[in-house]
């Protein structure tokens, strides 16, 4: 190797070493930013877990709230949250998916569609209390649905509708044009293409949107208080399945209710310290509910995506 080459190689190595310094700098900043998020969450969760651990018993889940902190439970709250979520899913998913499919596959591409598109995206940023006020005027007073599970479910459905619409559209857009054209080229109508291809193939993405929406909805307090959820409730809504005919009852839809975040809020505003650990325990339960919903979604998405490669 000549001297000239040796010098050149040394220069190149020095250059690379100098450039790589920025890799290290950025890597460090990245790890630090990540840690701030992860550590904060971990500390908060552990703190809540330690505070709530003594109250996390089976009795806690199966008891109604009480004036005595040691006997108070979250039965009415988690049952209420579950029922409200069921109404929310039943209302928001068909509406959101329908709107998303329409906007992507059917709507003519003109300024009107663009305007609707921008507004749908903006709706996702409207403060939840505004939805609460809308629901109070519309569902409670106008439609006379009362301060019920149905009202709360529909309110939260409105709240997460834009999230589902946007997720549906993104999922549909990720389907390659060749697949869509392949269907149309065989003489399919728009509806046949949507039903056989577009909707099934975008399900994993839609599901992600639904879960993100539900995770937000289950923790919402403001709009639920606005429509008049109860803060102290010592009974369960009528069961949907009954022993006598007609076996199925929809009375629960119009029943009063409370939800997990309201129960927590109620407890944290009490002066007694014992109620604080109740609130922490309820927080752990709420978090577990959210995380298990996420886990289920990830599993289903994985199953659905196995067959789809593009």
């Amino acid at each position: 190797m000549s001297d000239a080459t040796a010098v050149k190689v040394r220069e190149i190595r020095a250059l690379i070493a100098r450039h790589k310094r920025w890799d290290i700098v950025f890597g460090t900043i990245g790890v630090l930013s990540l840690m701030i998020g992860v550590l904060t969450f971990t500390v908060l969760f552990l703190d809540m877990l330690i505070d709530g651990a003594p109250r996390l018993t089976w009795d806690f889940l199966t008891s109604f709230p009480s004036r005595k902190p040691g006997q108070a439970g979250i039965l009415s709250a988690w049952v209420g949250s579950t029922m409200v979520m069921i109404v929310t899913i039943c209302a928001a998913v068909p509406l959101g998916v329908g709107a998303g499919v329409y906007l992507e596959e059917y709507a003519p591409k003109n300024w009107m569609t663009d305007l609707i598109e921008i507004n749908v995206t903006n709706l996702a940023g409207v403060p939840s209390i505004v939805y609460g006020l809308l629901a109070l005027g519309l569902f409670v007073y106008q439609f006379g649905l009362g301060q019920s599970v149905l009202t709360a479910g529909l309110t939260l459905a409105l709240l997460i509708l834009p999230v589902i619409i946007v997720a549906t559209r993104e999922a549909i857009r990720s389907i390659p044009a060749a697949i869509r054209e392949g269907s149309y080229a065989l003489g399919a109508t728009k509806w046949q293409t949507a039903a056989y291809h577009i909707i099934p193939y975008s399900l994993p993405g839609i599901l992600t949107g639904v879960i993100i929406g539900l995770a937000r909805a289950i923790g919402e307090t403001a709009p639920i208080i606005t429509v008049g959820a109860l803060t102290f409730i010592a009974f369960l809504p009528p069961a949907p399945l009954q022993a006598e005919p007609p076996f199925i009852s929809f009375e629960w839809l119009l029943s009063g209710f409370t939800v997990m975040p309201i129960q927590m809020f109620n407890w944290t505003s009490r002066p007694e310290a014992a109620f604080q650990s109740n609130a922490a325990a309820a927080g752990v339960v709420l978090l577990v509910m959210t995380l298990s919903m996420n886990a289920l979604a990830i599993y289903i998405r994985y199953r659905l995506r196995k067959n789809i490669k593009w």
């Binding site: 392949g182 291809h197 193939y201 490669k309």
Partner: peptide
Amino acid sequence: PIEVRMRISMVFQKPNPFPK
């Protein structure tokens, strides 16, 4: 156009089987 596509079929540049 649906009538036209029912009478005239097409094979595309890249194989585009459906994920079925």
